[in-house]
Design a binder for these strands. Sequence first.
DNA 1: GCTTATCTGCAACTTAGTTGCATTAGAATG
DNA 2: CATTCTAATGCAACTAAGTTGCAGATAAGC
Lengths: 123, 123
Amino acid sequence: MTPNEKITTNGLRLTTPRKKILSIFSSQGHPISFEEYALLDTTIDKSTFYRNMQTFEAADIIQGIESDEGKRYFELSEKQHPHFICQQCHTITCLDEAPIPKLSGYRINSITYKGQCPQCFDL
Amino acid sequence: MTPNEKITTNGLRLTTPRKKILSIFSSQGHPISFEEYALLDTTIDKSTFYRNMQTFEAADIIQGIESDEGKRYFELSEKQHPHFICQQCHTITCLDEAPIPKLSGYRINSITYKGQCPQCFDL
DNA sequence: GCTTATCTGCAACTTAGTTGCATTAGAATG
DNA sequence: CATTCTAATGCAACTAAGTTGCAGATAAGC
Ligand SMILES: [Zn+2]
Ligand SMILES: [Zn+2]
Ligand SMILES: [Zn+2]
Ligand SMILES: [Zn+2]
C-alpha cells in the first residue's frame, strides 16, 4: 500500500500539503527533521508539518525517531529497520540489513543504536 | 571506581551540588529527567543540573538517553545495558540482562528499544 | 454546485535546555 | 590557618523545537 493509499484508507483527506509531504519523504532514503524538510518545501507551515507527523504516526504512515540533539526525525514507515545515530557527526543511518532482536514480553517497534559511525571511529 | 572518585580523577571539583547530584542518582535504579530530579532536590538550579550532566557525560560518570517525549533522562553510567521505552505508558526500563549486539564497523555506546512494555502489551 | 467537517496557515504560546555574568567556594600553596 | 586563583554556582534572560487557538480555506460526499 502506498502512503497516499494509506491516507485514504484511514479516512484522512488527501490534501495538497499532505501529497507534497509524502512525495518529499518518498524521495529521501533516511529520516529528516522539520529543519531539513523546510529546505525542500518552503511553502509549508511548521504547525501543518508537525500536526501531520502526529496524524501520520498514528496511521502508521510515518515513523519518528529522537536524535541525540533534542530534535525529532521522521521517515516513511515501510519495512522495519534499526537506526544508528553517531554521537560525533550526528548522522542517522538506516541499518536496512541489521536484524531486529526479540525480547520476550515486549513488543518492539524500533531499535536505535548510538555510538560512533565507521567514519568517526577511524579517526 | 565510585562516581565521587571519577570526579576527582577527572580534575573536577567535588562540590556540594555535585555530591548531592551523585548521591541522588546512586539511589535511583533507572534514568530520571530534570523534572523528576527537582522533586528530590529542591535546592538545585536547573543550569547547575544541566551543566553537570554535560560535564559528567564527558567524564563518563553519567549517561543520557532521549525519551519519546522530547526530554532527556540521565543515569549513572556503570555497567552497559539496553533500555526499553514504552510508547504507551512512557516508562523507561533498564534491561540489565539483555545482550548488546555487535555491528561491524560501528562502535556501539547504547541501545534503545521502543514499543510496548509487558503491562501495556497485555491490554 | 452546495454543504459540512476536516485541514491549513498564522501568530501566540509553552517548555526543555542554554548562556552571560557577577558571586561563591573548592583546592593548592606557603 | 590565611591567601590566592580558578572552577563552579545561581540567577535571569534567552533560544529554539514543538504545540495550540482560531478564522478562513478546501477536500469529499451528495
Ligand atoms: Zn560519525
Ligand atoms: Zn530508516
Ligand atoms: Zn507501558
Ligand atoms: Zn539503565
